[in-house]
Every structure is written in C-alpha cells, then in structure tokens.
Design a protein around this nucleic acid. Structure first.
Lengths: 243, 243
DNA sequence: CTAATAGTGTCTATTAGACAGTATGTT
DNA sequence: AACATACTGTCTAATAGACACTATTAG
C-alpha cells in the first residue's frame, strides 16, 4: 500500500522547486485515526444444560480530558507527521488498549466540519477484530454492541460504530474476517451464533453447516461436560494464527 | 453522514476548556481529495457491420506546477478548513474537470509518509462515475484504462487507480453502480461489454441477459441501421436520472 | 427418562454455466 | 445469400432454504 513519491524522473526544475517550497498555506486541519475494535465474549449462563450465550463486544475508553470529558469514545489519536495511518493505528491501539498486532482494515474517513468542537479534525476510522480470549486489554473496557449504541459517545463515534457494523455485515458472507474474532478452536454452533449476532438474524443450522464446513478443519477433539451431546471442535482452514 | 459534535450535554467545564483551547500542536499535515472519474466511451469501428467497441476511460489532468510538472495526475485539491471532504470533491471536480453533480463514493484514504515530495499530505480518494455522453469536461482529458495504467502518473495515483478498479470489480455484481456510467438508453450487448471491460473477462450472452434483465426496463425502441439484426433498447429500472 | 444441543438426509426452488439453435436487419 | 449480431430454449450442476429425523451426553 505504500508508494514512495520520489522514484521517478525528477528533473533539476523540480528539485529547485522543492528547495524553495515552504508548506505555508496548508489548512489548519488535523488528522486522527479511530479504531472500532470488535470481539466476541461468552456470557456464562445459569442453566448447566444451556450453552453460554456469546455477544459481540466493542472496546471503548473513557475520556479524561475535554472535550467530552468523562464520556466514552473509541480509542483514537492524532496522526504524527512521520507516521502512516497504520502506524498511528498501531500506536494508538497499544497505548490506549494494550492490543498489538491485531487484524485491522480501513473503514471510512469522516470529514464533517463540526465533528470536533476544538478545531477541524478529519478522522480515518479503522475496524479491528480480535480474539478476546487471546489478548489482554489495558485502559479500555468492553461493551456490548447494544449498550455502546445506546450510549452517547464522544464526537461522531456512534456513527462510526453504525458504519462499522454495516461493513461487518456486508463482508461476513464473502470473506473470512469473522475468524479474526474467533478463538483458534470452536464449535460450529459457536461460529453460527457469531454470524447470527453480526447479521442480526437466525440461521438454519443445517444450511449453515453445509456452507461453512468448506472453510473448516476438524481438530478431532470434542467438547465435554456440556450437559448434552458433545460437539466436534473445528478450526479455520488455512489459518495463520499461532498454535 | 454528517453529525454535529455539539448537540450533547456540554457542561460549563467543557465550554471553559474550549474558550482557552488553541490548536497549537496539530501536526503540519495537509489533506487532499483525489477523484478517480470513470466513464465509458464508444470508439468507432471501420467495419459497417460490427458494433462500435466501447472502452473504459479515466479522467486525468496535466499538472502545470511542480512537483510532477507536466505529468498527468488525478484531479484533486486541498481540503479547505470549512469544507467537508465531499465539498472539496465537488469543488475540485467542477474547477478541474467541469463536472458537476456526478455519482461519487469514497474509495480509500492514502496516508503513506512519502507520497508527496513537498510535505506530508494524506489524500482521501473518491471514485466518480459519469455518463460521458451527458457531460462536458473542461481542462481534463479522457484516457483509456490501459493507457493510464501504463503511464507514470503523479504521486501514488497509479496505485489509486488500481484500487479503484478493484473496487469497481468488486461492486459491479452486487450493486447497480454501472448504470451511472451508462447512457439513459442502451442495448443489453452494450451493457454486457461494459461488464466485460470492468471484470476483464468474457461473459455468456444468454446467462447475462437472464441475470440482468430483472434490472432493466424495455423502452419499446429498437436500434436500426446496424448492418445486422436490430436490438431492443433498455433503460435501468427505477432510474433516477432526468429524462 | 429428559432437556438440550449435535448432526444427517432429503426435498424443492432458484441460479449460474454451457451450448445449441433460431431470428432478423443491412449490404 | 452472407454476415454479424440478437435472442430463446433447454439441459446440467451447484446452491440455499426448509424441515424432518436421528444421535448423544449430563443429570
């Protein structure tokens, strides 16, 4: 995705121009990066026979400074002059949430004029997906999507979450992004529930099995002590995660 | 897509903070918007019996200033402090190409550090689609995709075009965006050729007719003087263009 | 045995792909 | 008549949806 703008026939005229160029007239606009971090978490149930319900979570941080002091916001930060957007994303994720090396993709760049009361700030939003079980977070809290959508978040972050959900919904059926949120090993029922949460509708188990099984690999293991018939445990085929 | 950041419970503390806030420490980064404008054009053939071949075109402007003086580039410009990204896009399109009110969607934001030799500039790229026959351009030239990809363009604009093509390819089969590039009325063969150009492969006429006809509406008109069997002329169903 | 989930088989409707064959204007 | 394109019909294979049915554990 990087392309250096200097590996071209740059004549003496251009070099001369650049020697005297001074970035005097750029508009006083800042750029930030915000991360919408999704993960799936199991909420324990009381009934020993029932499966733990899972829910889709999002990572928010409490703002300690104005503006929107004490409101929750997406983790984000200003883009440094010598940082790519991805560099900023990684730095912000580590410093505000403790997460390193997680799957991320650019979502959308939000540029409305009044989105930040301090000054003009354009924000490039990224979606990040994590396996909550494999990572530790620090300084940020997981909220269910429903709660996060009901809360008033800082800036236009409610809007960002809406768009991120739409993107997830749109991509879940023709990509393998869900697996970035799944543990290394899981049952088909667990996977189906994640699909159902993201798509917001129930799926037929028989049809789901058939379509998804091409992407899965049997680990040979089974669940146990579940109070009902054990389930095969699968992993994502062609997975690149560490064992 | 707009959300005003001020319709919230902003206490006296925040107001006080904002009164004294001075945007002193923003990074000296500028933001630009670049437009990848696609259209389809007919190239006349010599053989009276053959149909005119169509080709996918892209709109480029010749740079008159350093850097990349005399190179071709995508139409683009700096985002003004009181402009949204879409505002900038519209202004740039009108001033550099003469195009107004054309379909556009955000593509991707390019943020590598060295993409502009003058200073740090992050660029938000948009895809625009036009019916070339209905619009006049001024100050810009149409190039075939093949030519544009072979040329060395300013900045990372070759990369932007690559990404734009991928996006078009990805969306053509599950959206109706092609119709923004089509004239109001067209034959199925013409439409199929556009699909073939964008997808880079031949399609079977029978299958194409069947799948596409649900989106089309018969105008009742027919082509004539084509040197072969006339063709029905269709338009896009639920079209919003002006008659 | 029962509750709860796991998993299979089958039927149907729809769709994509392939391809043969027919239709119709202009020169 | 010949050319070039327009259009239709049919077969097949693959797929999605619906639903009934069987299987297996802990308690």
């Amino acid at each position: 995705m990087d392309m250096i703008g200097t590996d071209r026939p740059a004549g003496e005229g251009e070099k001369e121009f650049l020697r005297h160029y001074h970035p005097k007239e750029y508009a006083p606009i800042s750029i930030t990066v915000d991360a919408i971090v999704f993960g799936v978490m199991k909420d324990a149930t009381d009934n020993y026979r029932k499966l733990d319900k899972q829910s889709l979570k999002i990572l928010l941080v409490k703002r300690e400074q104005y503006p929107y002091k004490d409101y929750y916001s997406l983790p984000g930060g200003f883009v440094g002059e010598q940082e790519t957007l991805e560099d900023t994303l990684q730095r912000v994720l580590i410093s505000k949430t403790g997460l390193a090396d997680i799957y991320s993709e650019q979502l959308y760049t939000f540029g409305s004029v009044e989105r930040d009361p301090r000054m003009r700030i354009v924000s490039c939003a990224y979606i990040s997906l994590v396996d909550i079980g494999k990572t530790k977070t620090a300084g940020a809290e997981w909220f269910s999507i429903e709660d996060a959508c009901r809360m008033t978040l800082a800036f236009d972050h409610n809007l960002m979450i809406d768009e991120a959900l739409k993107r997830l919904q749109g991509k879940i059926n023709y990509t393998d992004i869900v697996f970035h949120m799944m543990p290394l090993e899981f049952t088909i029922s667990e996977l189906q529930e994640v699909y159902e949460i993201i798509l917001g509708k129930k799926l037929l188990p028989a049809a789901f099995r058939k379509t998804i099984s091409g992407k899965l690999e049997d680990t040979g293991k089974m669940t146990s002590n579940a109070g009902h018939r054990p389930s095969r445990i699968f992993r994502h085929r062609s997975f690149l995660k560490m064992e």
